[in-house]
Design a protein around this nucleic acid. Structure first.
Lengths: 221, 221
DNA sequence: GACTCTATCTCGGTA
DNA sequence: TACCGAGGTAGAGTC
């Protein structure tokens, strides 16, 4: 990674056009050639950037960075205060815990957390409009269409509603019910869901995880 | 801006939990206290970050960065290879030349690009649910409710549908039609739109811009 | 302050 | 490869 601190101006022409007046900034060049221009302010996001793959044309006082899509960023250097290069090697990468996928897995493994007596039909049931997160059967024999979100907002309810409308055309599923499951559900989303006969369920992720590890322990005893 | 190149491990606990195994990385601390950890690969986005406002607790071999929301990022330094500090001063900031807004302006100026005979009623028509991009009248006297996007995706169709439902309560508008306009429209969005009787129109931005400059030339001759 | 919508969204997955 | 959806989305604008 090359780090350059310099007074510079930057222009970008691609999906939109931008200009950066002359100022002191950090120019960061990563191993794969991607270039980012950072100011010292606010955001973690750079002011301008160009992701790989790209080609850096180094004209010493100014660089032109081009990508295959025809976008170009021009950095003009007026005065350089720092220029260093560092070899990092491969990064082992980020491990994540607590994303929607995991929540879905935990719920599919313990459907009765959402409603007593629920049994799993399948996860990721594909429809023309996209995959339904979880399909279950309830004690009365209805098919329960379940949408899982980390945060329950209005677009999740819309998504579930589309699935319900679409799946109503499949007579093999029998009577349908909708269920909206999230760690927390916004009042607006809850109101909309309930006005459409969709049941809302809030679940606790840590509790779920605990339940899962209990099961695991039990299973291995 | 402080730049530290070091072998480090990072943990984040907040909206989710993440771990970064020991590796060589860049730790960037900006003037407002926000901290970002960059690898040498791919993205302009840092692996981990903490935006301002936050408090950095410096225990020399490890930092704990906390924000008021109760999130925390812990950076443990194992070996430091570079550590420098730079004073940037205020950045004059990024100047942008538009995308969707400009597309909207161009379409409002030439409504017949979307459908022959369309005439503009108004732009940015405010409803309880948010502003309708463009309102037009068609040759049959219907009011056409138009949603403009750069890329036409399914949530844009939902947005337009909400406006249509809401505007149906306004008798002064007469018969309503919906129109979804974008540079490109995804198949799923098109399917959903057409199932709701919403017309889909793809427009070419460069062509539109050309048309506009023709008009401009004509006007100034 | 809460809500809404945009983004050079980015990023990952999958058909 | 294109499409689709999640995101610690962030950030701007509006009510």
């Amino acid at each position: 990674m090359r780090l350059i601190v310099a007074r510079c101006t930057v222009e970008y022409a691609g999906r939109l056009e931008t200009r950066l007046p002359e100022a002191l900034r950090l120019v960061m060049v990563k191993a794969d050639g991607c270039v980012a221009v950072h100011s010292d302010g606010g955001a973690y996001k750079p002011l301008n950037w160009m992701t790989a793959p790209n080609v850096i044309e180094d004209n010493s006082d100014h660089w032109v960075v081009r990508n295959p899509k025809g976008e170009a960023m021009t950095i003009t250097f007026h005065e350089i205060f720092h220029d260093s290069d560092h070899v990092f090697g491969e990064d082992p990468g980020l491990e994540k815990d607590g994303v929607e996928k995991q929540l879905q897995e935990l719920l599919a493994a313990s459907p009765d957390v959402m409603e007593p007596g629920l049994t799993l039909i399948r996860r990721e049931h594909y429809t023309a409009l996209g995959p339904v997160d979880i399909l279950c059967k309830d004690t009365a024999g209805n098919t329960v269409v379940i949408e899982v979100k980390r945060r329950g907002e209005i677009d999740g309810v819309e998504q579930l509603t589309r699935y319900l409308v679409d799946l109503a055309n499949d007579p093999s599923l029998g009577t349908l019910r909708g269920m909206f499951v999230a760690q927390s559900i916004k009042p607006q989303a809850r109101t909309l869901a309930e006005s459409r006969g969709i049941v809302c369920v809030e679940v606790d992720y840590d509790e779920l995880r605990g339940k899962q590890s209990d099961k695991w322990t039990l299973f291995n005893q």
